[in-house]
Design a binder for these strands. Structure first.
Lengths: 158, 158
DNA sequence: TTCGATGCAAATAGTTTGCATTCTA
DNA sequence: TAGAATGCAAACTATTTGCATCGAA
């Protein structure tokens, strides 16, 4: 298990900046790492390791899956990448600088990604009430959305 | 993947009642099912399928792991059981009637299980603000607890 | 006496690890 | 050129499935 990265996400506006950030930490800027980063920059949603290693369905050159996992972990330790679990599927990886938190409906499966400030009031309320400052960027807020909510009993069976 | 059970948890105050509930649904009250239920009643925390099949470290007779998974799924469909993911480990199973929601610190790993009414204000706030009625009984609220929160920058390195 | 459930084994999904080789700094 | 990273294969964890047999109703 990866030790969770503490502190703000490492911002790198493009692949080259991210590669430079790696070098700055004494890590090597390899071709495989560049590929993983390119996939992350090209993806518009969090993507599985498999999809990343596959170059987003072949749009980019593919890299080895085991190396992709290793690199995603390294990038996560460095603070360039984070990963989410939106449901029962594989973990999904995204650029850390694309800060998002998630709300998922367990009825229709709809995923809503919001910027963190959107949930700040909620975060503060939880912190005040329970002594924990929550983040919903690893496990989402899961529930029934209003469209999926079952209507009142007497309306379902008149 | 199990279709999520809708509606209130099926309450069965003891193993025999749970077995009766199974029969009432046309399912069979088998020895293996009784064992899974006995483990669930005996466990004081959500337990992995492995631990359940192992009879809670041998305190109860063990059952087959694959059958335990099958039975846990069946029991979940019926509404007697639910399962949680508290971290990166295996899924954990509990009696549905033991309604709990979870808060986990990603610093120290502390798990807090609270009765649902405790989070009702929070639930209502999320519902009002985001059109989704959240439950934290499948994925917990994850964050940094006050003890684990890093102190202000100038205090860490004077 | 009939299906539903069991238990074993094998398959699968997701992820991690070992190791000889390659490549970056 | 030393050590980090790669790529392939194999191991591993969690879970699911196939199938012959068993047992509850």
């Amino acid at each position: 298990m990866t030790a969770p990265h503490t502190g703000p996400p490492l911002a790198a506006p493009h692949v080259d900046a991210a590669m430079a950030a790696l070098r700055a930490r004494g890590l090597r800027a390899s071709a495989a790492r560049r590929l993983v980063l390119e996939a992350l920059y090209a993806a518009d949603e969090p993507a599985s390791a498999e999809r990343i290693a596959g170059g987003l369905e072949g749009r980019l050159p593919r890299s080895d899956l085991a190396s992709a996992y290793r690199n995603l972990e390294t990038l996560e330790q460095v603070g360039l990448v984070r990963h989410v679990h939106l449901g029962h599927g594989p973990g999904l990886y995204a650029l850390a600088e694309r800060e998002r938190e998630y709300l998922v409906c367990d009825g229709c499966g709809a995923v809503r990604a919001v910027k963190p400030h959107v949930l700040d009031p909620l975060r503060n309320a939880v912190r005040a009430g329970f002594g924990i400052e929550p983040r919903f960027d690893h496990f989402p807020i899961v529930g029934r959305c209003d469209e999926c909510a079952p209507p009142a009993r007497e309306e379902t069976t008149p």
